[in-house]
Design a binder for these strands. Structure first.
Lengths: 262, 262
DNA sequence: CGTTATGTTGAGCTCCCTCAAGGTTGGTGG
DNA sequence: CCACCAACCTTGAGGGAGCTCAACATAACG
């Protein structure tokens, strides 16, 4: 699906949210990502908790999730890794992974060794800065998840997670005003939103009845993006995208206000 | 209280959890932190959401918290910054802060400009690595907060937060087997644990009645560290300290198992 | 075409929230 | 030194959002 060989990697599209890239940058990035590409089947872990990380990963296509298990065995998904996402830049400073990253769908992943990364960041400081920016954004998203799960009800949690995913996928060209592919089960959504699968199910039904969004296994239909954002009280500034809200939104809708994001 | 002029900064003590420091490193760190020191009164913000960060901060003494407000006005504290903590290494890549950092007690804070930091990391790569490690640890703690608030009940949340604070303070010499200073109101605890102040109050009472911990404004007494850890199911590996569990614990207790942490 | 994962629905319960009062503490000024 | 005020803490009663447990339905998949 995404990132056919020869096309521009999702990561390049995303880094443009931080700063413009020269053709040389894009080509260098392409070479870095093309050096070692792995196919990973749905459900397969990329890195497991307790392991010593030997490679940094960049998602080329498909989704992964990062999770930790609570002492009682319950799983908390702490992040989704979408195409263009870097899983743990600076991971080499860790002796042991503190969480597990596993594929949610079949994916293509670029694996980058410590040495290759060191050489690359030396040679391409602007891209290295972009990597750090990406990692800051991931941290900001992590904080937003804490706010979301801590301070909001079930409907709002699901709705605002969907808004986030739509916005993140949109900048890499994997969402449009109709919706996007969603390789998640209701169990996955539940574990991300800290809810039970049963209550997640009922909440999804509610959102559909409200006419704002239809969430099925495999696909999200954004039935009414404005209403969804309003319900979710989605304030996308935490994503730190350079684009305006208008540009982030589905192209055929009008923007109430043009917010400059940082 | 902590970090009297001339003594070793808390940050140096903490970085030893990552790797040994040479005397030259410590001296350089000391100079970096001593260049510009601010006194900040309790309640005063260091950086506010939406601002453009001009300086990086390192806590020398006192506590700060980082928080974001939910759309409904509720506050979620997403991190506590204790002595030795770096508030946002790599913050200069951000155009706008996505959260507010405010002093919880009177504090002393080192402010480091972009230029000073750039020069320092160039000159002292080992310490720069230590800074990155610190920032990774902060990310890991952030994830733990999500797991804690998402998957655990009120007693366990409070208990495991107290365990975390004890461990983090212990490595910088600000906690012993008796307990530690706690400059938090019950409202602060509530906003960190995503609970109401009322329920926090009742939970604190319960923990005291159980005889595991006494949490008052200003002070925590670790009445029974083993029982507290058991109740909290505290697994400190997410802190990525090099010390063993035995060394982290109050010195006069026996360790059931010696876990090598990473 | 069975088997396993996933989704759906219902009834009852509990943990935590809401709302509403007081009570206590510490600081400030008269 | 006392009166007062503003935080902060404490306690109670009632309600509700979301959990638990238990079926069953449906889809995915070999």
């Amino acid at each position: 699906m995404a990132t056919a060989p020869g096309s521009e990697p999702s990561l390049a599209r995303k880094l443009r949210q931080f700063e413009p890239l020269a053709p040389g940058d894009v080509a260098a990035l392409h070479r870095l990502l093309a050096a070692k590409v792995q196919q990973v089947g749905a459900g397969i872990p990329l890195i497991e908790e307790g392991e010593t990380p030997l490679e940094m990963h960049v998602v080329l296509s498909g989704w992964a999730c990062r999770y930790r298990r609570a002492p009682n065995g319950r799983r908390q998904i702490v992040a989704f890794h979408l195409p263009g996402d870097i899983c743990d830049f600076s991971v080499f400073l860790m002796r042991q992974m503190d969480s597990t990253v596993a594929a949610l769908s079949d994916m293509r992943v670029a694996s980058i060794s410590r040495a290759a990364l060191a050489e690359f960041t030396q040679r391409w400081p602007r891209l290295a800065q972009g990597f750090w920016w990406e990692s800051l954004c991931a941290g900001s998203i992590q904080r937003e998840w804490l706010v979301r799960n801590g301070q909001r009800g079930a409907r709002e949690r699901i709705a605002s997670l969907i808004c986030e995913l739509a916005a993140r996928l949109y900048v890499v060209g994997l969402a449009d005003d109709g919706g996007f592919e969603l390789p998640l089960t209701q169990y996955d959504l539940a574990d991300a939103c800290a809810m039970t699968p049963e209550h997640t199910n009922r909440t999804l039904r509610e959102l559909r009845k409200l006419g704002v969004v239809t969430i099925e296994r495999g696909r999200v239909w954004l039935d009414d993006w404005d209403a969804l954002c309003a319900l979710a009280q989605f304030v996308p500034s935490y994503l730190h995208f350079r684009q305006t809200y208008a540009e982030l939104r589905p192209p055929n809708t009008q923007t109430p206000a043009t917010l400059e994001l940082a």
